[in-house]
Amino acid sequence: MEFNTVVVTLVVAVVALVVMRALRNISGAPFAIVNDTVDGYFEIISMFRVPMQKTSLYILDTVFSVYIVGTLVVFVWRGAWILIDLFLFPGNFTQSSWASLVIGYGGAVFAYLLQPFMRWICNRLTGGPRLIASDIFLLTCFIFTVNTWRGIWNLLNIYFLPDNLELSCWITHWVCFILLVLLKCSNSLLVRGVFIDGEEPGGRCVVFPVYYLRLIFEHEKSKKIKKIQQDFANKLKLENDNPKLSSVISNHIAISMNSKDLKGHGNNE
């Protein structure tokens, strides 16, 4: 009876999410990472993108996003997790957990290697075929995601302070949370709203939102550009406020340019 219930709830939830074009919301780490420096940190995307100004519709949109889409995502996760418990070395919990870890991380590597090919395919498809291709890829990655979580979760229960589960949970919670904060990606712990399947153009619908290092480098580059712009603005302000200083700077630039011209002329001779 439990098996039938699990299968039915899993299938119904997957079909419902596919019909609503919300299947991608079952994704999680290692296929989705959100930096703490992301714009709109406190903005949560709802299913129908209703603006807050339309209060009644916004409330309905939020309720639908949380209680319908969110619940269906939980159904899918629960169903997949229990089915793995039932079929992946059911008689050996330790072996099953190690197998999940290998399948999860091995599958993640495979999925990342396959991503350029899937992007190439989705770039050439449109409409229904494009959605079907992206959903199949998302479901495959989801299997690897659940196995990764299950493997880590169970192996921690097996090997990390198995005789003191409460202490084990406290340590893993706080140490890992602090590490995520220091790495500036604790935002990955949260559900960041409802996303629509295939809403990105072309093959971007199968690109994993994992931009950790890229966003850090872009942020540092942006800071340097802003500093240069600020220094330039301050220099202009000084020149405008102090005409004598402006004259000195202009003369210095002119002398430098003349010196370079003379050197160039001497070299030509």
Rank of each mutant, 00 (worst) to 15 (best):
S256Y: 02
A133D: 01
F31K: 05
Y211V: 01
I84K: 04
V191M: 06
N242H: 07
K227Y: 15
L238P: 11
S56K: 02
K260N: 12
G107I: 01
F217W: 08
F142Y: 14
V74E: 01
D36H: 02
F177L: 14
W81T: 04
I171A: 03
I82T: 04
F87H: 08
R49L: 15
Y105G: 00
K221W: 15
A13Y: 00
L182P: 04
L131R: 10
D163K: 14
M1I: 06
L215E: 15
K263W: 07
V19Y: 13
L17V: 02
G127R: 03
K237R: 10
L156A: 06
L113Y: 07
L57Q: 10
A22G: 06
V175D: 10
P209E: 13
D163V: 06
F48V: 01
A133Y: 02
F195Q: 03
H219S: 07
F93R: 08
E218V: 05
W174E: 12
R130H: 13
G70Q: 01
M47A: 15
L86N: 06
P129F: 12
A13R: 00
F42T: 13
L139Q: 02
L215Y: 15
T9P: 01
V146F: 14
F3Y: 13
D261Q: 11
I132N: 09
I225T: 07
W149K: 13
A99F: 03
R49H: 15
N267I: 11
R78G: 08
N4I: 08
L179V: 15
F75I: 00
I249A: 08
N25S: 09
D231R: 00
N4L: 11
C185W: 14
L23F: 14
E2S: 05
F177R: 12
L156S: 13
E199T: 11
A80L: 13
V50Q: 03
A29R: 03
L86D: 05
S56F: 04
I68M: 13
K184L: 15
D197E: 02
V34A: 10
L139C: 02
F142T: 05
G266K: 00
I44S: 07
R24W: 14
S247M: 05
L156W: 04
